[in-house]
Simulated scan of single mutants.
Amino acid sequence: MIINDFSKENSLISKYIFELRDVSIQKDSMRFRRNIERIGEIMSYEISKTLNYETVKVTTPLGEKEVYVPDNKIVLCSILRAGLPLHNGVLNYFDSVENAFISAYREHPNDDDDDFEVIVSYLASPSIEGKTLILVDPMLATGKTLENVLEALKNHGKPKQIHILSVIGAKPGIEYVEKIFPADTHLWIAAVDDSLDSRGYIIPGLGDAGDLAYGEKL
């Protein structure tokens, strides 16, 4: 896996990560969503540098000019619900891509917070055969969600290239995903934390991204 860790370089992403983590600032749900969206926009610009380009001719009011434009067929897949702000950020830059949505949640069969499995209950996706797949999951914790999403998408074809976008990840989860995904997969991540707690949440992380973006659930 090709890991692009933005925390290892100076960029505005570090400011947005600070605000996402801060317990006082993150209470503003609109600002929280917008900061994740901004990270998606910055990552999209960086992803654009890895795409294939073709030469096309454009007609202006005063003549013609050859320009380079991406020629990749892209499917953007968001993991509901926490992935929506990051999805929107990517969509702001890749506005003509196809879109897919998948629902994945943690089920605790024995009412034990420490014992859970990730359940995929909804998937709406076009064919991903031979296309560039961008998977959006803001919190890469255990890696089990991405594993289940990859399995669920198999019936929709085999992508030519995979990009994973995450805001914060834990080292154990990243190591797990490296074993599951193809070696040429790109991981774009804004920050990497060292560990998970017994419930599989990132430490120190930022809390529950879905709840902070859209309100607490039952």
Rank of each mutant, 00 (worst) to 15 (best):
L133I: 04
L123C: 13
T50L: 14
F6S: 09
M139S: 09
L12E: 02
N72T: 01
G157E: 05
I164W: 04
R33Y: 11
G215K: 13
A82D: 03
L135H: 07
T142M: 09
L196I: 08
D95I: 03
F94G: 05
D137V: 12
A152K: 15
I174N: 05
G173N: 11
A190D: 00
A104F: 09
P61L: 01
G143K: 10
D5N: 15
K158L: 12
T59H: 13
L153V: 05
I134F: 04
I128N: 07
A190I: 02
A100H: 03
R106T: 03
F94M: 07
K8I: 00
G200T: 11
P204Q: 09
A170E: 10
L146E: 04
G40I: 04
S96P: 00
I128A: 04
Y201A: 10
V167E: 01
D111F: 14
F94A: 03
S78M: 07
D5G: 04
K158G: 04
Y93W: 10
L91W: 04
E66R: 13
K15N: 13
S14Y: 00
E129A: 10
D114E: 12
D112G: 02
S14I: 09
K57T: 15
D5A: 13
E9H: 11
E19R: 14
A170H: 09
D112W: 10
E175D: 14
P159G: 06
L212K: 15
L146D: 06
W188L: 12
I47L: 14
I174V: 11
T132P: 01
K27H: 08
G157L: 05
G40C: 04
V56H: 03
A82Q: 06
V69L: 10
K160W: 02
P109F: 10
I174L: 12
P109K: 12
E147D: 13
V118D: 04
L123Y: 07
K154F: 03
N92I: 03
H186Q: 12
Y16S: 09
L150G: 09
D194E: 14
S7P: 00
F116W: 12
N99Q: 14
I3T: 15
K171C: 01
P61Y: 02
S29I: 04
V58G: 08
L80V: 07
T142W: 07
L206E: 02
G215R: 12
P70W: 04
K27D: 02
